[in-house]
Measured scan of single mutants.
Amino acid sequence: MTEYKLVVVGAGGVGKSALTIQLIQNHFVDEYDPTIEDSYRKQVVIDGETCLLDILDTAGQEEYSAMRDQYMRTGEGFLCVFAINNTKSFEDIHHYREQIKRVKDSEDVPMVLVGNKCDLPSRTVDTKQAQDLARSYGIPFIETSAKTRQGVDDAFYTLVREIRKHKEKMSKDGKKKKKKSKTKCVIM
């Protein structure tokens, strides 16, 4: 069974824990209790493949930012979460993405942009803004509501699919490099 290491990042209060708990335990946590770091595991079937999701729910508070490099190193894919009623959390996505790329030393890291709290009427981040940002990053965008469960499975499952595509691409690139290195030079 394939294991996928997913990391949920975003500013404090955007609903990272609520999304994760909704996926794992099928219930909505409405009281806000700032996370330092929590880890969850769940076995699911995605596109006919049974897999184990190892999900790291991270601290959004700035005082825990020193811990970010460590979990970013171990993560295979990242859910970059903002709240649709919090423009600052949307603007912060850029910083999370840049930090992930720096730590992973790669421009090509599996990510999904997630606009959470889409059940709320007080939207300050337009869907088109988020779609445009995701398009500019070359990553999928999904709106979710941890409260109603809308888009929750889709967000995590899409990230797994992005990781699969990335692994497939990397193995193809690896095979191309191996083929090239088999060419021999004969000096007579």
Rank of each mutant, 00 (worst) to 15 (best):
K88D: 13
D119N: 13
G77P: 01
D126F: 07
P121Q: 12
I100H: 01
C80E: 01
D119R: 04
V103T: 08
N116T: 15
L120C: 11
L79Y: 03
S122D: 12
K101I: 07
Q99L: 14
M67W: 03
Y71C: 14
L120T: 13
K88W: 13
N116D: 10
V109N: 01
R73H: 11
G115L: 09
G77N: 01
D108I: 04
I93S: 02
I93W: 04
G115H: 04
R123V: 10
K88Q: 13
K117S: 14
R68S: 05
V112I: 12
E98C: 02
P121D: 14
V81C: 12
R68L: 03
R97I: 15
R73Q: 12
E76P: 02
L113V: 09
R123K: 11
R97P: 02
S89R: 02
D105G: 15
Y96V: 14
H94L: 14
E63C: 03
R102T: 07
H95K: 14
T124P: 10
A83G: 14
G115V: 09
H95T: 08
N116I: 11
S122H: 11
D126R: 04
V125S: 11
E76Q: 14
V125D: 12
T87W: 04
E98L: 01
E63K: 05
M67P: 04
M72E: 07
Q99E: 14
K88N: 11
R68Q: 05
S65L: 03
I84H: 15
S65E: 08
N116Y: 00
G75M: 07
M67A: 08
Q70Y: 14
P110S: 03
L120V: 12
Q99S: 06
V109T: 04
S122W: 06
M72K: 03
R68F: 03
V112N: 00
S106E: 08
K104A: 14
D126W: 05
V125M: 10
D69Y: 02
D105M: 11
E98K: 04
R68V: 03
T74H: 12
V81K: 00
E107G: 10
F78P: 00
E76C: 15
R73T: 12
S65A: 07
K117D: 13
G75W: 04
M111H: 00
Q70G: 07
L120D: 10
F82Q: 03
V114I: 13
E63R: 03
V114R: 01
V103G: 06
S106I: 10
N116K: 00
F78I: 13
V109I: 10
K117T: 13
V112Y: 02
R73F: 06
M111I: 11
G115T: 04
E107M: 13
F78E: 00
A83E: 15
V125R: 08
I93V: 09
R97F: 15
T124S: 12
D69R: 04
T124Y: 09
P110R: 02
M72P: 02
V112T: 00
K117P: 00
D69Q: 08
S65Y: 08
D92I: 03
R68T: 06
D105F: 06
H95L: 07
R73G: 11
I100P: 01
E98R: 04
R123F: 09
K101M: 14
S122M: 07
R97E: 08
F78G: 00
E107L: 12
F90R: 09
M67H: 09
Q70K: 07
G77F: 03
R73V: 07
T124D: 13
C80T: 02
V81R: 00
V103E: 08
P121T: 11
H95V: 04
V125L: 09
D105Q: 13
V112P: 00
L113H: 02
Q99G: 04
A66Y: 08
V112L: 09
G75H: 07
Y64V: 08
F78N: 00
D69C: 02
D92G: 04
V112G: 00
C118H: 06
V81T: 07
S106C: 11
E98D: 07
L79M: 08
C80G: 02
A83I: 01
K117F: 14
D108F: 09
M72Q: 05
F90D: 04
E76N: 15
Y96G: 01
V81E: 11
A83C: 05
